[in-house]
């Protein structure tokens, strides 16, 4: 029998991949620098703030920059925890606790004041002060200071439970006048 010619057609795999989008979605090209530069030139002329009166002056966010919290705080660290209180809120540091002040151990968990105090009441005593005392307008009661100091604990000034810095009252010029300022930590 005469030789016959066979033509075989093989189609590729019929396995479909996963369809990841809904049927009604549409795609478009990403914005380019050229198109955005053209649009930018147009919208730059339409400053929405033009409706207000323009002013000049220094940048208050630079001139009156708010200080760094860590630089304005004392760090109290113990038993894997550290808390922050405002500078000058610690009014007495007994020698035996000096190693717990501003000696943050890397990895110690930072916690809020109330959380820290609740587990460290054994060696921390709080002294409730008024705003006038905090401002240094009125001295902290010497009797209160003396009583608190006898405990041998770390003394922290608080106002309604929150640590507050205490500014020492201005010292009278007369050397004979006894000072009633709280003992600020060395």
């Amino acid at each position: 029998m005469k030789t016959s010619v066979l033509i075989l057609t093989i189609l590729a795999s019929q396995v479909y991949g996963e369809v990841v989008r809904e049927a009604d979605v549409r795609s478009s090209d990403a914005a380019t620098n050229e198109s955005l530069a053209k649009k930018y030139r147009a919208v730059s002329l339409e400053d929405p703030m033009k409706k207000f009166e323009a002013t000049k002056g220094e940048d208050p966010s630079v001139v009156n920059k708010v200080g760094n919290l860590l630089e304005n705080s004392e760090l109290v660290t113990f038993n894997g925890q550290t808390t922050l209180v405002p500078k000058n809120a610690i009014i007495k540091i007994p020698e035996k606790f000096a190693g717990r002040i501003n000696k943050h151990i890397e990895g110690a968990k930072i916690v809020g004041w109330l959380d820290f105090l609740s587990t460290n009441r054994g060696w921390i005593t709080t002294i409730e002060v008024t705003l006038a005392q905090a401002k240094g307008e009125v001295p902290v009661s010497p009797d209160l200071m003396e009583t608190a100091s006898k405990s041998g604990n770390l003394l922290v000034a608080v106002l309604q439970g929150g640590p507050i810095s205490v500014i020492p009252p201005k010292v009278e010029e007369s050397p004979a006048t006894p000072t009633q300022t709280p003992q600020v930590k060395p």
Partner: peptide, 29 residues
Amino acid sequence: TNFIRQVQLPSSGVQFDVSVPAAGQQQSP
């Protein structure tokens, strides 16, 4: 951990720590 500081103005050096949870509200004393 979050901290709120209340700084009395004009700057007198008095700073007050207001302990707060991650979200919530309270009055400053």
